[in-house]
Design a protein around this nucleic acid. Sequence first.
DNA 1: GCGGCAAATGCTCATTTGTAGCATAAGCGT
DNA 2: ACGCTTATGCTACAAATGAGCATTTGCCGC
Lengths: 327, 327
Amino acid sequence: MKPPQQIAIGLNAVIVAVTAEVPRILTVRAPGKGPSLDALPFGPLEPATDSTLDRALRRWVREQTGLGLGYVEQLYTFGDRERDPREALGGARLVSVAYLALVQERAASAAGAEWRAWYEFFPWEDWRTGRPPVLSEAIEPALERWIEGASDAAARRDRRERADIAFGLRGVGWDGDRVLERYELLYEAGLVEEAWRDRAEREGSATPPDQAAATLLPSRPMLLDHRRILATALGRLRGKLKYRPVVFELLPPSFTLLQLQRVVEALAGVRLHKQNFRRLVETAGLVEGTGRQETETGGRPAELFSFRREVLRERPAPGIFTAPRRL
Amino acid sequence: MKPPQQIAIGLNAVIVAVTAEVPRILTVRAPGKGPSLDALPFGPLEPATDSTLDRALRRWVREQTGLGLGYVEQLYTFGDRERDPREALGGARLVSVAYLALVQERAASAAGAEWRAWYEFFPWEDWRTGRPPVLSEAIEPALERWIEGASDAAARRDRRERADIAFGLRGVGWDGDRVLERYELLYEAGLVEEAWRDRAEREGSATPPDQAAATLLPSRPMLLDHRRILATALGRLRGKLKYRPVVFELLPPSFTLLQLQRVVEALAGVRLHKQNFRRLVETAGLVEGTGRQETETGGRPAELFSFRREVLRERPAPGIFTAPRRL
DNA sequence: GCGGCAAATGCTCATTTGTAGCATAAGCGT
DNA sequence: ACGCTTATGCTACAAATGAGCATTTGCCGC
């Protein structure tokens, strides 16, 4: 018999692709576990064979899905006790190192692996067609109730402050990068399914109260804390877009400037000014014309561009600044 | 008997303080190990008692050094096989989650814990008094030899490209944030002691060749890959300074604007334009005057300012932009 | 008390960068 | 040819940035 509290270590992958202006992540079916939740691909570190963490990741992603990863970046290491409610009951502590990978979408060959639009998990994050209605219709009133439900005036002030900052309320202004902050607030306020599920599992009770179901936001839950990992990934990616030319990992070798812009917009969740975007990427030397044309644009043909790898040596930190228009 | 390849997990802390314009980190004496190397404080995750990773960190830092940490941020998780050369010989794989902590300097009470100026570990990173001479005198010629030593023309081009970008050579321009990239290049080129030590330990040979000792840069080595962790911390901190008001964690509750500037400069490793710095922090609303004065300035007395916590709600990403003057 | 020094503080000005929009070009379908 | 769509060039204006001059104010030595 092992000591009661062991540590297990593993790797999670947030594999991102953008197709048809929809950012997607690769999910797998959660093993067993009732109503079959979405989960992030997960795999072990094999110390005997994997010389580095990211090689371990690439190995089992290929084994599980047939997908060869290109750009890979470590995101964060999750080790909270609460991340797996079963641990409170004596299971091993599960430490996961999460990675972000950017690929061009292809069919993942593993059974059960599926591409899912990531805004299904975070409907409040997509502002491309304006402020998502779920904010005014569901989130704001629910947060208001949560704020009012605090025990005293100081706690209420604190909650309101956090809600304002996270969701850009009362004059604060939306900050696209605060994805994790928003998800964590919604979790704490009991507006996402995971919050109730975790409480129920920890306390052994069966189903969340009816009242809870009524206030849940329409959004897709995930296994364990995987939606938190996903929020971390989205926030990090949005931040990185602004100062590193990572978008190109998601695009084919040549593309029109509008295609490039659409991918950035899909990730950033906002619309950008077309002419300025074009000027920005051109003056930053991020792309170079190929001379070829794309004629399937639906309008005037567009020139095809390709990423100029040399920029990496020209500017300290080249990138695409996806400054959201202030509303 | 356990399986030959186990995984052990632990936490490393890079604890930073700035005193008298010198950024310092807390080091401990490496246990045993010959000539007594500097090491980063290290401690375990106790799954039974530590509910989160950062609580584990705070716990053992207090136990070992008596220091209570305030601002703490996860840096990176290191899990390469090569990080501990003994592992190649059958030891357990050591995975370390590294954290960055910012404190005001105080005496650390543990025996053997010492504050060390971090530019002793990276003398080429401090440009406050101009370009460090070690660059022209030692690094550039040594890198030149390393470039020329590549096996073929393509490899030479590749090495030169990397050296140019990392060290801002041949028109590229110095980027203060690329601390890790520089350290890794120096390691690869065999210019830091760790490179030879690791090779010797892996291959079982005794001492580095004389030729190696001759090209080593004058800089302080650390245990295992701790200098790499430190480089990660410095780079991350420099980057973060630009968009988050983290400097204030290192300062007392009230300070003059010059004191603030000196701390930023110490971390960023560059001098800044005084009037513009002042304008920046004031218009960004990062500080507010206290009405009190500091008279020990050596010149006209300066007003004491304090950090305005409210900025966190006002701007999406307030911070201090330590834009280095382009050279 | 006075002149000079050091640092603080106020302000100007040129440049760069960011934002918004107008205008024209060039394919496609009818 | 006309109208629709998207591409692409260019202008006007606003804000942020970078560099420097000028003035203020306490201290120190004389």
